[in-house]
């Protein structure tokens, strides 16, 4: 800061603190809702300060039989489903993007650029523009209601491929030459040299992709009909619908809290990698 006037400094911090409060407010309200019982949560005005039912709500949400009037899987199972989906999507994307970037950068072969453009095209075809036909493909392949169906169709990734391509291009040519003289073949070079050198990029990308995978909504909604395959993020919709008959807001909001804790925790705990991943992939 160029100025050193205490008043401006005070105002600066004041604005920022107000901003932080404004951003945090919805989550605070959610948290507060998860600490009261159903009775209290049905009286206006709603509380703004935590009560003492947090653990009870957690227990009921995680292991209880769900909202009355719905047929939902237990929340712990949804969390597991979400975790499996997020991990499969993120590791899958990273694995196949690493391989194709390696091929495109380090090999000269017919149709190389054709493949490159084919991967590029996926950038322009989000699920939202091909909902029905993609659903049909997954259904025909018998992948509905499976982890494979939840993850595989999402793991093609132009951004990840481009990012790894960028990373590989900055690796000096002499390392490859050196490795060739040392007798390393392509796969050996990939695993011994390239992968260790891309370690932080992989970690950064993993953070972004884990969040991406965890937060999937439309896709699981389309291809899971079996309640045992429900993910926690998509369950919110059914809960909100159920709330119109049985407004168990304490349970709904505890579920919402549980649905956001894992990705939020990842962002905060791995902030440096998260920022690196976000700026490197430009989304």
């Amino acid at each position: 800061m160029v100025e050193h006037r205490p008043l401006t400094a005070f105002l600066t911090h004041l604005v920022l603190i107000l901003g932080v409060f404004a951003i945090a407010l919805p989550v605070w309200i959610t948290f507060v809702a998860s600490t009261h019982d159903e009775l209290r949560m049905n009286q206006a005005p709603l509380p703004l300060w935590p009560g003492e039912y947090f653990l009870a709500n957690m227990k009921q949400t995680l292991f209880g039989s769900g909202l009355s009037g719905t047929e939902q899987a237990p929340v712990w199972l949804m969390l597991l489903n979400s975790l499996a989906m997020a991990l499969m999507i993120s590791t899958g994307k990273i694995a196949i993007s690493l391989l194709s970037a390696f091929a495109i950068v380090y090999f000269k072969f017919p149709f190389r650029m054709g493949f490159f453009w084919m991967i590029f095209i996926t950038l322009m075809l989000p699920v939202e523009v091909r909902i029905l036909p993609t659903f049909e493909v997954v259904a025909n392949l018998g992948m509905l209601n499976s982890y494979w169906g939840l993850s595989i169709p999402l793991i093609a990734s132009a951004t990840a491929t481009f990012m790894f391509r960028q990373v590989f291009l900055t690796v000096p040519d002499e390392l490859l030459e050196s490795a060739r003289i040392d007798g390393a073949g392509p796969l050996r070079f990939f695993f011994d040299i390239l992968l260790p050198l891309s370690r932080t990029n992989i970690a950064a990308l993993f953070v972004i992709l884990f969040i991406f995978g965890w937060n999937q909504y439309l896709w699981p909604l389309l291809i899971t009909t079996d309640t045992s395959m429900t993910t926690i993020v998509m369950s919110i919709k059914q809960m909100l619908e159920a709330a119109e008959q049985s407004p168990q807001w304490n349970i709904i909001m505890t579920t919402a809290l549980l649905a956001m804790i894992p990705p939020v925790f990842v962002v905060i705990a791995m902030q440096k990698l998260f920022v690196q991943g976000l700026t490197e992939t430009d989304k």
Binding site: E174, L175, S178, R180, A184, P196, L197
Partner: peptide, 20 residues
């Protein structure tokens, strides 16, 4: 022959050491 089969060793200008 592949470089590795020629029984040679090479020292590069930028050393090309494996950084990790």
């Amino acid at each position: 022959l592949e470089p590795s089969a020629r029984d040679i060793a090479m020292v590069f200008q930028n050393y090309a050491l494996y950084p990790h």
